[in-house]
């Protein structure tokens, strides 16, 4: 089932084009990534989808509703975590959850969310006293308190330390496992690779690619190793997925697609060949972005 359908979305500010015909659709139950460098139009895209901004052109449907004309009905069913949003310094964690729960017709029990998001011992702490990771967990809990069918998470882990990012990633997977469709906006390649089922790559207001992370990385991978002097390995080029074998002295480079690497190592073992310096050069989303846009992806 299609949850979000965006067609030819256009938006400009003061004569500057920010979105230049963005189209994508999000299916129920997936974590859909919107990836791109700063200024690519990611936040503007989700703001149009959330109904915070009116597009200049194109159409947006979320759960079959128009974010502008059916805004209120839609907002009952979506949860949002916005970039650069704060709460009042002196509001307590439970008060914020209790308050946001009161905005929805059928909210979740916020006490359960406190437990679920590891905030139970911070129940009476004021927002101003929370750490970055705790604030982020509170924002996610607030986005979920209305029991949404779709959650929008914008630059969720910016400013978090590596460990807090890992923890947050696990939590995002849990949201999806609970049946909520997640739209994740990020400028972190590793985050998108780790979490997303599919990714729309935005650059200069256009979708330059839309695929699974593996599909985007796609293409050929290279496996290199060094043979013991005088050894030889016949039959490597006949293995499934292998597209080429070159040997320079004792150095061997095998190129291939998909899961060719295990086949190669199994083949080596079968022939009782010992190799050293085994390396697999995996293409990353960074490489894919550079290939798509001709520019490097700089955070």
């Amino acid at each position: 089932m299609t949850v979000i359908d965006v067609t030819d979305l256009r938006k400009g500010y003061a004569g500057r084009t920010v979105l230049d015909g963005v189209s994508f659709s999000v299916e129920a139950g997936e974590i859909f990534g919107i990836l791109g460098p700063n200024g690519a139009g990611k936040t503007t895209t989700v703001e149009c989808v959330e109904g915070l901004r009116r597009p200049d052109g194109g159409s947006v449907r979320v759960l079959g509703l128009d974010p502008f004309t059916d805004g209120r009905a839609l907002r009952e069913q979506v949860g949002v975590q916005l970039q650069h949003t704060q709460l009042p310094e002196n509001i307590k964690v439970w008060e914020a959850l209790d308050l946001y729960a009161s905005f929805y017709a059928r909210p979740r029990d916020w006490r359960g969310l406190l437990e679920e998001w590891g905030l139970a011992d911070k129940r009476d702490a004021r927002f101003g006293k929370l750490s970055g990771g705790q604030r982020q967990r509170l924002f996610i809990a607030l986005a979920l308190v209305g029991d949404p069918r779709v959650a929008f998470l914008d630059e969720l882990t910016t400013g978090l330390d590596p460990q807090a990012r890992r923890v947050t990633w696990e939590l995002v997977k849990r949201i999806r496992d609970n049946g909520v469709t997640v739209v994740l906006v990020s400028h972190f390649m590793d985050e998108v690779e780790e979490l997303c089922d599919r990714v729309a790559v935005l650059d200069q207001g256009r979708v330059v690619a839309l695929d699974t992370p593996a599909g985007l990385v796609g293409g050929e991978q290279r496996m290199r190793f060094t043979l013991m002097a005088g050894d030889s390995v016949p039959g490597l080029d006949g293995l499934p997925g292998v597209t080429g074998v070159t040997r320079t002295g004792d150095r061997v480079v095998v190129t291939g697609r998909g899961d060719f690497a295990p086949a190669v190592t199994a083949h080596l073992a079968r022939h009782r060949v010992t190799v050293s310096d085994l390396r697999i050069d995996r293409r990353t989303l960074d490489d894919a972005f550079a290939a798509l846009t001709g520019r490097s992806f700089t955070n």
């Binding site: 949002v80 916005l82 209305g146």
Partner: peptide, 15 residues
């Protein structure tokens, strides 16, 4: 409230 995005955050809810 506006600076902290509290009004904006609220406009994403039914309230």
């Amino acid at each position: 409230y506006r600076e902290r995005g509290i009004l904006r955050r609220m406009s994403t809810t039914p309230a």
